[in-house]
Amino acid sequence: MGDEMTAEERALVEMDARLVRALEARPAVEIPAGFAARVAGQLPERRSVSLTPTYYGRNVMVACMVVLGVALLGLALDRTGGTTLGVALEWFVCAQFVALAMWLGVWRRGLR
């Protein structure tokens, strides 16, 4: 009785091992030639991307600097601008002009 159980267990273990070996063996497959090209042919067309830079931001900044420069000139030539409000406005416009000039300088350095 003990021998039968041992033999049966041995048969189970051997069957398990054979089964696992068979499952681990990969089926031999042959990838057809041109498969990659066939898949690529099914992909949707990509839109072409424009590589020409537009510099819209830079152009707007330069235009603003020109406007501010003209405003500064106008304020400087205005002899009646001695009021506190006039001086404050001059400093405000000057500060904006300087800030834009600094930004443009950093932007150009970043391009190099």
Binding site: I31, P32, F35, R38, V39, L43
Partner: peptide, 10 residues
């Protein structure tokens, strides 16, 4: 199988 594989990659 090649049709199915194509479907997988797509």
């Amino acid at each position: 199988v090649d049709d199915l594989a194509q479907e997988v990659f797509l």
